Amino acid sequence: MGVHVERADDGSASIRFEAREEHLNPAGTVHGGVLATLVDTAMGTAVRTVAGDGDVPATSQLTVTYLRPGRPGELVVTARLRTKGEHLTVCEADVEQEDRGLVHAVATFALLHH
């Protein structure tokens, strides 16, 4: 997707993404599916910073709250772990554009052992 990971450590992650014309819906704003993919990607990256060797995070639940529409331009996504259990981990993430919140999301990840 062209996501740039800025930081990923200690249960948190920050990514940047340049929303372009192809990421827009018919209304001319960033498609909700793109925003959901971004928060899922950032949270999965955060979980991987604390997962054991051979553990793969798999999204088992994702709730996305859309606060305002996004426009073409840079989006910043920050994610952080809220609770890490033995088999499930809960994260949250925010998408901002020009220091304004666009999305808040919460997800549960299962750790699959490979």
Rank of each mutant, 00 (worst) to 15 (best):
S12A: 12
R100Y: 03
P72N: 10
S14W: 08
D99R: 06
P69T: 14
T45M: 10
R71L: 08
A93S: 13
V47D: 15
L38E: 00
G11Q: 05
T49Y: 03
H4I: 14
M43V: 01
R20M: 11
Q61H: 11
E96H: 09
A8C: 10
T65M: 12
G70A: 14
H113D: 15
P69V: 13
I15A: 03
L24H: 03
P69D: 15
A51H: 04
R20E: 15
V50L: 04
V30D: 06
G70Q: 06
A8V: 11
A46D: 02
L24A: 09
H104E: 10
E96W: 08
D40A: 01
V50R: 09
V50Y: 02
T59N: 00
A13N: 08
T59I: 01
E86D: 11
L62R: 09
T37M: 12
L111S: 01
V64Q: 12
V64M: 12
T41W: 02
V103N: 09
R82Q: 14
V95Y: 01
V34G: 01
D53G: 14
E6V: 13
L67S: 10
R7I: 05
A79L: 07
E22A: 15
A13Q: 07
P72A: 11
R68P: 02
R68L: 12
G28H: 02
A79Q: 12
S60H: 00
E18P: 05
V95P: 04
A27C: 08
E74Q: 13
E92R: 02
F17T: 01
A107F: 00
V39E: 06
T41S: 08
V95S: 07
A58K: 07
T45L: 12
T29I: 10
E86P: 00
A79G: 10
A19E: 00
G54H: 04
A27W: 04
S12M: 12
V34R: 00
G33S: 09
S60M: 07
H114M: 13
E21N: 04
T49Q: 10
P72R: 05
P26H: 04
T89L: 03
T83L: 04
H114G: 14
V3P: 15
D9L: 13
D99Y: 11
T108I: 14
L67E: 14
L35V: 04
L24F: 13
R82V: 14
V39A: 14
G28M: 05
L88V: 14
I15N: 01
H4V: 13
V103M: 08
G33E: 11
G85M: 05
A58Q: 04
H104T: 08
V47Q: 06
S14E: 10
D10G: 08
A110V: 06
F17G: 04
F109C: 00
D10W: 05
M1P: 01
G85D: 11
A79I: 02
V3I: 13
H87R: 09
G32Q: 07
A107C: 03
V47S: 11
G73N: 08
G85N: 04
G70Y: 06
E98D: 06
V64P: 00
V56W: 09
G101R: 15
H113E: 14
D53Y: 02
G101H: 09
V76E: 06
